[in-house]
Each structure stands twice: as C-alpha cells, then as structure tokens.
C-alpha cells in the first residue's frame, strides 16, 4: 500500500465525490417527485392510465441499469429526428444522459415501493375517511399518503443505497465520479488497491451516512408507534 498516491490525487477524488453526490441527490429527487403522482395513478387511475405506468415500471425494473444507460447515451443518436431536435444538446452530454437514466430508473423502483405501501393501507382507515365524507384527493393527502410514506421508508432507504451504488456506472460513460476517479488513478499509477479501496471507503461512508439519517427520520416518523416512556409515577 502506498498512501501517498491517495494524498497526491486527493483533488481527483474530491471532484469524484462531488459528482457522485450530485448525481445521486438530483436523480433521487427527480425520481421521487415523479414517482408519487405515478404511484397514485397506478393505484387509482383507469386501466388506460395504469397500463403505460405498468409497462414503464416493468421495463426499468427488468433490465440492467447499464443497458438503460447505453440505450440513452449511445442509442438515442441512432434517431435522426432526435438529432435535429432541440433535445439533442441535452442527450449529447454524458452527464445529463446519466442523470436522465438514473432518474427514470429510481422513479420506476420508487413507484413500486410507494404503490406497495399504499396498497397496505388498513381498509378501516379508508372506510373511516369515506365515512367522514372525504373526497379521494383529500383522503390521499390526509390519510393514505402520510401513512404510506412511513411504511415505505425502510424500502426507500434501500433504494437510495442501490441508487448510490448504481451511479458508479456513470464512470463507464466517461464521467469522473468516485469510481471514475479511482479508474483514472489506477490507470495512471497501476495501483488498483489504493485506487479502488479508497473509492470503496468513500462509498461506505456515504452509505452509512444515509443509513444514519434515515434511521433518525424513521424514529421521528414512527414516534407515535413507539412504546411510551415510562415515568417514575407509573411504577
């Protein structure tokens, strides 16, 4: 092990870390924002609305992220129509292609997670909301979605970690994320241990940070479900 390789290339890793964090947070944000209305439509929409959402989810969950990224980054260039359209500057950029693919991918997984949580709503809660005269949007906003988010949180934290690991693929299409930085260092000094172990440690640090904060959020959201703290008078 030659630690000086890591310290000398600190700048590359810092750039990589920044790119990874940007890719993860932006794609997770876009994915989540798109996923919530799609999950609602997947549960409450008509058959004609549900079918394309199901196809979207089926495709993105059934194929490797790498292939999806290649389809967008290399594949879209095959269409002359797209090449002459105003969208071409967008799809010509590796970074934006990666962001586009990651967002759609995490969106598809998140739709399934939220849908699963919505389906698991106890029937009595829905009956009670109906009996209180709530309209469907009001019921969704006040009853179904808040409890669905709580139930979805553990699965969603897994999805966040999977997405973090997924962004490592961006290095394949020339983006310098953490893995990209490690690949540069490895090819420059032929020192795979230093290069990739540093990357591994950085990813682990981000993973555990995510786990830590989700755990805190979980405790907050589930506070009403925890056993009440016993006070001295109770004993």
């Amino acid at each position: 092990m030659n630690l000086s390789i890591i310290t000398e290339n600190f700048g590359i890793y810092a750039e990589g870390l920044q790119n990874t964090l940007m890719l993860v947070s932006i794609s997770l944000a876009i994915g989540l924002i798109l996923a919530i209305p799609l999950a609602v439509l997947r549960c409450y929409g008509s058959q004609r609305v549900q079918l394309p959402i199901r196809a979207f989810v089926y495709f993105f969950r059934g194929t490797p992220l790498l292939v999806q990224m290649f389809l967008v980054y290399y594949g879209f260039g095959q269409f002359e129509v797209l090449k002459t359209s105003i969208f071409w500057p967008f799809f010509r950029e590796a970074y934006l292609c990666a962001l586009f693919t990651f967002s759609l991918n995490t969106c598809a997984y998140t739709v399934e997670i939220i849908r699963g949580a919505m389906v698991a709503t106890p029937h009595g809660e829905i009956e009670a909301a109906r009996a209180a005269g709530m309209s469907t949007p009001l019921m969704l906003r006040r009853i179904v979605l808040p409890s669905a988010f709580r139930r979805a949180l553990p699965a969603y934290s897994n999805e966040m970690i999977f997405m973090l690991h997924g962004t490592a693929l961006a290095s394949v299409i020339t983006i310098v994320d953490i893995t990209g930085a490690a690949r540069i260092v490895n090819s420059r000094f032929y020192s795979p241990y230093e290069a990739f172990l540093t990357a591994a440690v950085l990813y682990m640090a981000i993973t555990f940070t995510i786990v830590f904060f989700v755990k805190r959020l979980e405790n907050r959201w589930h506070r009403h479900l925890q056993p009440q703290q016993q006070t001295a008078e109770d004993n």
């Binding site: 962004t167 693929l169 394949v172 682990m204």
Partner: peptide, 13 residues
C-alpha cells in the same frame, strides 16, 4: 462491507 460498496468497484478491485 458488501452492502456498502458498489458492485462495479468490487469487480474492478
């Protein structure tokens, strides 16, 4: 460790 590190990084390592 496996849960914390991306598969691609492990594979390259």
């Amino acid at each position: 460790v496996i849960r914390g590190v991306p598969d691609l990084v492990l594979m390259l390592l």
